[in-house]
Structures are given as structure tokens and as C-alpha cells.
């Protein structure tokens, strides 16, 4: 009987541990997206056609020329992507070089999007079947990666860029350059 009771208290302890876990998880915001596991790894090799006539396409070789860059993953059909346009413009004004991959998009839609919300990008590759997005470990649009001059992925920002994220991204970019 003593052995039995000992194991019963173990059950009580287990239940309490589960409650503590619940409490901890309830009291903090839920992680909604899965992060890329490729941070610190070289960019996978790719070569994308231009997504719009106004800019050339994008290949992984373009991102290993010694210059750190922001790689923005966006789509014309994505609402938050339009919301982050002012922040991208601010980043560009403060000297960030930004390239982009347009996910599952048509050239005319990308052109109209750039027309409406501005074009801070030097290159835009078209990724009609999310191939590069999957290769990057990106889980949605918009996302912004910091790529250093050697083509190594340094940082991933998930979701649209808010005003407070702009200095963070600039800092990450500076670190990637040094």
C-alpha cells in the first residue's frame, strides 16, 4: 500500500507540473510562426526570372558580392506587405540595399503593387511556386532576411516591418557588413 500511495503522489505531482506548464504558456504570447533553421547558413542556390519589367531578376550569386542586403519576401496579394511599404522606404533611404522575391505573383500585379506602394527594391525575382521561399525556410509573406556579403543568412524578420523594427534591421545589416 505504501508503494501505491507513493506512485499516487507522483500522479499528483505530474498533474501539477502540467498545470504549471499551462500557466506558463498561457501567460506568454504564442509563437505563431516557425523560424527558419537556416540562420547562419549560406543562402541556397537559386536564379529567378524578373517579377516585373522595371527590375532585373534575382539569383543567389547576386547576394554574394561583398555587400550586405535585405531580402524581402512579399506578394502583391498580401495585405500586410502593403502595410510595410513605408518602413521599407525608410530603410532604403537610410542606405539599406533591398532585393525582393515575389511569391506566387503575376507581372502585372507586381507592377501595379509597386506603382501603388513604391519600389524600394533593386532586384525582384519571381517565385511562382514558392520554391525559393521553401528553400529559405520562410513560412509566409511578408518576411525580411538579412544576408551578408558572403551570401550567409544572418537574420530573419517574420511579419510586416513596424516602425520599431527599422532600427533593428539596420543594426543587423551593419553587423552583417562588419
Amino acid at each position: 500500500m505504501i508503494r501505491l500511495r507513493w506512485s499516487l503522489w507522483l500522479v499528483v505531482a505530474l498533474a501539477l507540473a502540467i498545470f504549471v506548464l499551462f500557466f506558463v504558456q498561457l501567460s506568454r504570447p504564442k509563437e505563431e510562426f516557425v523560424r527558419s533553421a537556416l540562420i547562419g547558413q549560406p543562402l541556397p542556390a537559386f536564379a529567378l526570372e524578373p517579377a516585373a519589367e522595371s527590375r532585373p531578376g534575382l539569383s543567389s550569386a547576386d547576394l554574394a558580392d561583398g555587400q550586405p542586403r535585405l531580402l524581402n519576401v512579399f506578394a502583391s496579394w498580401c495585405v500586410p506587405c502593403a502595410a510595410e511599404a513605408p518602413q521599407l522606404a525608410a530603410l532604403e533611404q537610410q542606405g539599406a540595399q533591398i532585393v525582393a522575391v515575389a511569391i506566387r505573383d503575376r507581372p502585372e500585379d507586381v507592377a501595379a503593387f509597386l506603382e501603388a506602394f513604391g519600389n524600394p527594391f533593386t532586384r525582384i525575382g519571381a517565385d511562382p511556386i514558392s520554391e525559393v521561399q521553401l528553400a529559405l525556410g520562410s513560412s509566409g509573406v511578408p518576411e525580411t532576411f538579412v544576408i551578408d556579403g558572403q551570401g550567409i543568412i544572418r537574420y530573419q524578420h517574420i511579419g510586416d516591418i513596424a516602425d520599431r523594427d527599422v532600427p533593428v534591421l539596420l543594426e543587423q545589416l551593419r553587423e552583417a557588413g562588419g
Binding site: 516557425v34 527558419s36 533553421a37 521553401l134 525556410g137
Partner: peptide, 10 residues
């Protein structure tokens, strides 16, 4: 290939 990118989550 996918686990390399998204971790065990995928």
C-alpha cells in the same frame, strides 16, 4: 531537406 529548413516542426 525540409527539416533542414523548418526544423522538426515540419
Amino acid at each position: 531537406w525540409l527539416v533542414e529548413r523548418y526544423g522538426d516542426y515540419v
